[in-house]
């Protein structure tokens, strides 16, 4: 160093040089590296070495600045090296149509997406989301819900038993009873969860499937409120112009009971194979809570009324995505699941 300037001035000079790195070509970059950071005669290396010889009042400021600059310079050089390398790897006229670089992205299960979406729609109507056990007693699964085991209505529930009086729930409705026993109205809940029926696998049946149950209990809840609640859901889940119809039906735990059909989403009502030419798709069973259920759960059936509904998530998922076979939802085939990446 012919003219040893003060370390401070030298540092400022080096700082100016950092900018040159950004535009340097490969040869210049190598020179710059040696000039500043060379082990033997690098200008910055020299300053760092000389710190101990400085007067104590300068030592600290110089040391700090020098270290800062070292880091900056190193980072700038390595970025420039990377940039030069990719330029070298490619001809100057880049083919911009070459594929970009991706990472794996996973998908939420389509059934889980539908469940969340439905729970969120009901949240807008003041519903909260709760759950309950999958292994249940006959008492909660049947008796409290006004399904006597000696009535043919119990036949619709082909049940897996675990022991005397203990079974895998055939619907999420036991959570209705558990909730009513624990809370005073107003109750507005949705209960998603898996349920079990002793049905072998076939394209439209599975021994286990996901259901969403809903329950409303309060003073003055009427059939009109019930229809409005279900209608609100349908219009928000499907489209605002989807036609809905309520057909009388029978469930032991509701009365009046209904089945809800929505206009077929495939043919828009003109008739197709999905809706078996009817123009309608059945999506849920529901109705006004039967007073016997209130009485079984310790709720005053004169004072309170309410409504309840239940629907199968696999079926709705299959309709939404055009999935032909329920088994696809349980096979965990990567080619299937990857289609649902958002």
């Amino acid at each position: 160093m012919p003219n040893p300037a003060s370390p401070k001035a030298e540092l400022e000079a080096i700082a100016q040089a950092v900018d040159r790195v950004a535009t340097a070509d490969a040869a210049t970059l190598a020179e710059l590296k040696t000039e500043y950071l060379g082990r033997k005669a690098g200008r910055l290396t020299g300053i760092l070495r000389s710190i101990s010889g400085l007067p104590p009042e300068e030592r600290r400021a110089v040391g700090r600045r020098a270290n800062e600059l070292k880091q900056e310079l190193e980072a700038a050089i390595s970025s420039r090296e990377a940039a030069l390398e990719s330029e070298v790897a490619r001809p100057s006229d880049v083919d911009w149509t070459m594929p970009g670089r991706h990472r794996w992205r996973g998908a939420k299960h389509p059934v889980a997406s539908v469940v969340d979406e439905i729970c969120e729609i009901f949240r807008e109507l003041g519903f909260t989301r709760v759950s309950g056990p999958e292994a249940e007693t006959e008492d909660y699964n049947f008796t409290k819900l006004n399904i006597p085991l000696d009535h043919p209505a119990a036949d619709e529930h082909d049940t897996f038993y675990l022991g005397p009086g203990v079974l895998l729930r055939t619907h999420t409705s036991p959570v209705q009873a558990r909730t009513m026993e624990r809370y005073e109205p107003p109750i507005r809940i949705v209960v998603p969860g898996v349920v079990y029926r002793r049905d072998p696998f076939d394209p439209s049946h599975s021994p286990m499937f996901e259901q969403i149950e809903g329950l409303v209990v309060d003073e003055g809840v009427s059939f009109v409120d019930f229809k409005a609640g279900i209608d609100y859901f349908v219009k928000h889940f499907f489209t605002a112009d989807t036609a809905v119809r309520f057909r009388p039906s029978f469930f032991p735990f509701t009365e009046p009971s209904a089945e809800v059909d929505v206009q077929c989403q495939i043919c828009h009502g003109s008739g197709c194979s999905t809706c078996q030419q009817t123009g309608w798709l059945e999506i849920m069973g529901c109705g006004m809570v039967h007073p016997a259920v209130f009485e079984n759960c310790g709720i005053d059936s004169e004072r309170y009324t309410g409504y309840a509904f239940g629907m199968g998530m696999e079926r709705i998922t299959m309709l939404r995505h055009g999935i032909p076979d329920i088994r696809l939802l349980f096979e965990n085939d990567m080619r299937f699941l990857s289609q649902f990446v958002e």
Binding site: L125, G126, F127, T128, V130, T179, Y183, E184, P185, P186, I187, R188, I189, D218, V224, D225, A228, G229, Y232
Partner: peptide, 10 residues
Amino acid sequence: ELRPLRPSVV
């Protein structure tokens, strides 16, 4: 007809 309602206590 969507009528006034009380939110859930649960």
